[in-house]
């Protein structure tokens, strides 16, 4: 897959990092402001998709990235399940137990496990969307 023109590459170089950081901001402030894991995850996936579209890549490398992002997706969701089931291990017998201290409302580190869930959901959504995008790109490349 070939990249795009120099103009697009330059613009992408400037804004790619900003988009990524904005995604991280949305994910980590999920419990304080609108947004959260899903919304932030899509923005992070958007940053990666932008890079692949602007710069292009060879198909072998794309296949390897797809394997990795697919594995990352599975691991993230597996972690979510383990965190949800931790309550059983702690003896409270509560599924989705909020076992961490809740802290002061409005602070970045507060709300117990909710930010952790947001981060994991962000990874999961970003990896899943990126995997779907790569699957389409690889399918299109193989057809040529």
């Amino acid at each position: 897959m070939t990249g795009m023109t120099n103009i697009v590459k330059t613009v992408t170089r400037i804004i790619g990092g900003v988009v990524f950081l904005f995604g991280l901001y949305i994910v980590t402030h999920g419990h304080l402001s609108p947004g959260g894991g899903f919304a932030g995850g899509t923005i992070i996936a958007g940053a990666f998709i932008l890079l692949v579209l602007a710069y292009g890549d060879n198909i072998m490398h794309l296949r390897r990235i797809k394997e990795e992002s697919s594995a990352l997706e599975n691991i993230a969701i597996f972690c979510i399940l383990i965190m949800a089931a931790v309550g059983f291990l702690l003896g409270t017998k509560v599924f989705f137990n909020n076992f961490l201290p809740i802290g002061t409302a409005g602070q970045l580190i507060s709300a117990g496990i909710i930010p952790l869930f947001n981060i994991l959901i962000g990874i999961e959504v970003a990896a899943a969307l990126f995997t779907i995008f790569l699957a389409f790109v690889i399918f299109k490349e193989e057809e040529k």
């Binding site: 594995a71 599975n74 969701i77 597996f78 017998k93």
Partner: peptide
């Protein structure tokens, strides 16, 4: 009644563990 969520936890754990491992 504490066993009820395992109807969902066990198959979900299987579903996500199998492709990883």
């Amino acid at each position: 009644s504490a066993l009820i969520p395992f109807f969902v936890i066990l198959p979900l754990a299987g579903a996500f563990a199998i492709p990883v491992f």
